[in-house]
Design a protein around this nucleic acid. Structure first.
Lengths: 226, 226
DNA sequence: TCTTATATTATTGTCGACAATAGACCAAAG
DNA sequence: CTTTGGTCTATTGTCGACAATAATATAAGA
């Protein structure tokens, strides 16, 4: 059994994604190909391939004969992303309610219980710092059983949301309420109530979006609720 | 005034997209890099860059150390795409109703009038063969004013839908009805009724999806209605 | 001093060659 | 005859060098 044949471009791409998301490579900064290649110990060939993927993820922008720069995050674009998430994750919740197995729903419920404990332990300080598998939204998307939906949400949108969380220090200012919303969504999925699951998820993300908008207008670091 | 600096990878990418969409390069066929490069008169470097973009568009699949193949279209994936389109184009219609200028709505109305004439002339034979700018859905997406939505629908989903139209010979079996639905959506946008525009668009695409599903189960070439 | 044209330099785009991997082919053993 | 093992070839991954473009610096003219 061979492992998934990791290529240089693959590895370096993942590394750079991490650096961009966490701000090691700052927003708007220009990417110098020879230097980046040297730093990662590869040649420009695979590096350019990695950069193509970064471009597909919308983490960098390329201009022919000029170069590539890390995207500049703005609240306007964040709101755009949340509009799309509302539509797509609503769909994902509906499909998850139809397709998720009892095993998967049990694991989801267990995840929320862990979140509950975490809130109690930290007294509501740091909910929603998790990523990847442990993320509530991520699991629901995975449970949608729509591969293309998984690709869109897990590919180009997921890393951008991560990037906003890191660099704008987005964290929930109402963890208990957010967790309650998660619980309701989970319950709807457990009961197989697709319509309700979609509606709850849409409202959940819409709430987060309004929250961001308000704080944006107040010129304060906004909170994120999911 | 210099033109947008077209690069070799850019040009060849567009060429290959066209070949894949129209079936010149058949589904599932493997892409041989040296041969493709020779055919297009470039080296493997820019070719691989072009292939990265094709992969981002989901027109080809790549396996490390094995190679790239054109995707195999299936009705299941087509239905997946329509689920996503229902959600995203519904959103696009809502936003278009909020943001499109009177100039844009007038152009949209004019487009539908042209379609009407075309149906009369061809006696309903060949509506919905247009592409790009002349496409009703395309314009609404453009009018959404959400750049990321435009990228998703216009990037990875648009070409796939084109591909299905070509290769499955998808064309409407009810052009008049589809045009009526387009007219209603256009009217809602003209009136700025965002909720209605979204609802109509979702129903429109949902109808098309049901149509495909029925014909799929009947094991007949399905029709497409948008 | 400001503007404009020119030259220089740094960076990207492109190419051909080499290395590494996977699949095909063939042979030998059971 | 089937299966297993190895070899061989075709294809992909990677690299370094060259060409072309854009940004910068410089110098000349108004």
């Amino acid at each position: 059994m061979s492992q998934p044949a990791i290529t240089l471009a693959n590895r370096v791409c993942a590394d750079i994604v991490q650096d961009i998301v966490t701000g090691v490579i700052p927003q708007g900064s220009k990417l110098n190909e020879p230097e980046l290649a040297r730093v990662h110990g590869i040649s420009r060939g695979p590096l350019r391939e990695a950069m193509s993927r970064l471009e597909a993820m919308r983490l960098i922008r390329r201009i022919p004969n000029v170069g590539a720069s890390v995207v500049n995050l703005s609240y306007e674009e964040l709101l755009e992303i949340y509009q799309i998430r509302e539509a797509l994750e609503g769909l994902a919740a509906r499909l998850a309610a139809q397709h998720m197995s009892s095993q998967e729903t049990m694991a989801l419920r267990q995840l929320l219980n862990q979140h509950q404990q975490h809130i109690v332990q930290t007294e509501g300080q740091s909910y929603f710092q998790q990523e990847g598998d442990v993320d509530f939204h991520y699991r629901i998307v995975q449970g949608s059983n729509n591969q293309r939906l998984i690709n869109i949400l897990g590919g180009e949108l997921y890393h951008l949301v991560r990037m906003y969380r890191y660099q704008f220090s987005l964290s929930s200012n109402r963890p208990e309420q957010a967790l309650q919303e998660h619980n309701k969504i989970c319950a709807a999925i457990e009961e197989g109530d697709a319509e309700l699951a979609e509606w709850l998820m849409r409202r959940h993300i819409s709430n987060a979006r309004r929250n961001i908008k308000q704080r944006m207008q107040a010129d304060v670091t906004p909170a994120i609720d999911n």
